[in-house]
Amino acid sequence: MEVRTIKVFTTVDNINLHTQVVDMSMTYGQQFGPTYLDGADVTKIKPHNSHEGKTFYVLPNDDTLRVEAFEYYHTTDPSFLGRYMSALNHTKKWKYPQVNGLTSIKWADNNCYLATALLTLQQIELKFNPPALQDAYYRARAGEAANFCALILAYCNKTVGELGDVRETMSYLFQHANLDSCKRVLNVVCKTCGQQQTTLKGVEAVMYMGTLSYEQFKKGVQIPCTCGKQATKYLVQQESPFVMMSAPPAQYELKHGTFTCASEYTGNYQCGHYKHITSKETLYCIDGALLTKSSEYKGPITDVFYKENSYTTTIK
């Protein structure tokens, strides 16, 4: 009895394709271990004539594949690729409408935090270190965002349907971005203890939790000093293409032309909904596939993004 075979390709990165001759009487799992086709788990399936010449994702289970996976995804987590594939199996079914010149995501599976993050990423200057993220990001900007969303979920250790947080998501993504040249110098002034300067680099240099107003941050924000008295913390120097200011959701007025974009969060910790506000020729609110415009805006804002380049204080 002759062994019926077909020729397929296996890959971990969709760049390096490895030619395989597979036995049609055995499952993919018996031949390769966990195997995925377009995100779908085909591990328990036997090869079919229609699979001839198709590319299958496999887990990096030998040295060659491990090197290829690390170079593309910059992670050695053995569960990463499987999590990416199972997320992709959902995100490829989502709709990605162009809204006001940006790629958004039609609401499904509690994905409003991903839509808000995706919209924000198209408006701030950011370059990702893992080629996987950078490639998928370019495709997302062009309207094909399924891979990018699935990668975000995998890097953030999230599953489809789980509630997510924009600030946490951005923080994970910033860790995989090139923020080497970003720098922030802060000064804390206390009447009792004097003053202390701190220099922050990388992710810490672009994120701040405690106030939404970048102007206020430049002037000074009140913080408790270690001595128990009130101290003032203010920005001395900022070198970065953008800054992200966050605070627990509270009524906040966004003035046209003073910011790049913002995240609105309605609801409580267990259950809520994100919308995205962007400042173009007027203010726009993007909620999944829905767009509304207004000249002014007041609502429960939790993150505001500002364009920056270089700032030095005039406070002496």
Rank of each mutant, 00 (worst) to 15 (best):
H48L: 14
C112P: 07
N268F: 11
Y137C: 07
D41P: 12
L151Q: 02
V8M: 15
D63T: 08
Y36L: 03
G194E: 00
V99Y: 14
Y252P: 03
A146R: 04
N157W: 03
F305K: 01
R184V: 02
V185M: 06
T266L: 10
S246N: 00
E125T: 08
K95P: 06
M244K: 08
Y234I: 11
D303I: 03
I277M: 02
D63S: 09
L17Y: 10
Q237F: 13
G272K: 00
I105T: 04
C149V: 13
F174E: 02
K219N: 12
Y306N: 01
Q216K: 14
V67A: 12
W94H: 04
V12W: 08
E204T: 06
A231P: 01
I223F: 13
G210A: 02
T27K: 09
I105K: 05
H51C: 05
G299M: 04
Y73Q: 06
A140W: 02
Y137D: 05
F80E: 04
E52F: 11
R167C: 03
E239V: 13
V189W: 08
L81Y: 08
R167Y: 00
V3Q: 13
F9C: 11
P130S: 06
C149S: 06
G101V: 04
C227A: 03
T19C: 11
V166W: 03
P47G: 08
C227H: 04
L290V: 15
I45A: 12
D13W: 02
H51F: 05
T159K: 15
V22C: 14
V8L: 10
C182V: 05
K46C: 13
L133S: 03
L173A: 02
C285N: 07
P97M: 14
N110P: 06
N49T: 13
S295Q: 15
L235K: 00
T35G: 06
K233N: 06
T35L: 09
Y265E: 00
A132M: 02
Y208K: 01
N110E: 06
V67Q: 13
S171N: 14
C149H: 03
E168V: 08
S294V: 15
I286S: 04
Y214E: 01
E239I: 13
A146N: 02
H48C: 13
M170E: 01
K219F: 05
T76H: 10
T313C: 15
C225L: 01
N14R: 09
V188K: 11
T312W: 10
K298P: 05
F56Y: 10
G53Q: 11
G53L: 13
F56M: 10
R184L: 02
E308R: 05
T55S: 12
I6Q: 11
G267Y: 09
E204A: 11
L88K: 05
A132R: 06
Y306G: 01
E68R: 07
D38K: 08
W94L: 06
H51D: 13
P47T: 04
V8I: 13
E125C: 07
G288A: 04
S263C: 12
P248K: 10
K106M: 12
V22Y: 01
S263F: 01
D303E: 02
F174A: 04
Q175Y: 08
G33D: 02
P248N: 08
L200Y: 11
A205Y: 00
L17P: 12
S246Q: 02
H176K: 08
Y113Q: 01
E71Y: 07
N49G: 12
N110G: 02
Y137W: 07
H18Y: 10
K191Q: 14
A40E: 14
P47N: 06
G101W: 06
K201C: 10
C225M: 00
N187C: 13
S294A: 12
C227R: 01
Y96V: 04
E264Q: 06
L179S: 05
A154I: 02
K280N: 13
L200F: 12
I124N: 04
K95C: 12
V189G: 02
N157T: 00
N147K: 13
K93M: 10
D109V: 05
S79D: 15
K44Q: 15
V243E: 00
I301C: 00
D180Q: 12
C156N: 07
Q123A: 07
K316A: 15
C149G: 05
Q98T: 14
T169R: 03
F32Q: 09
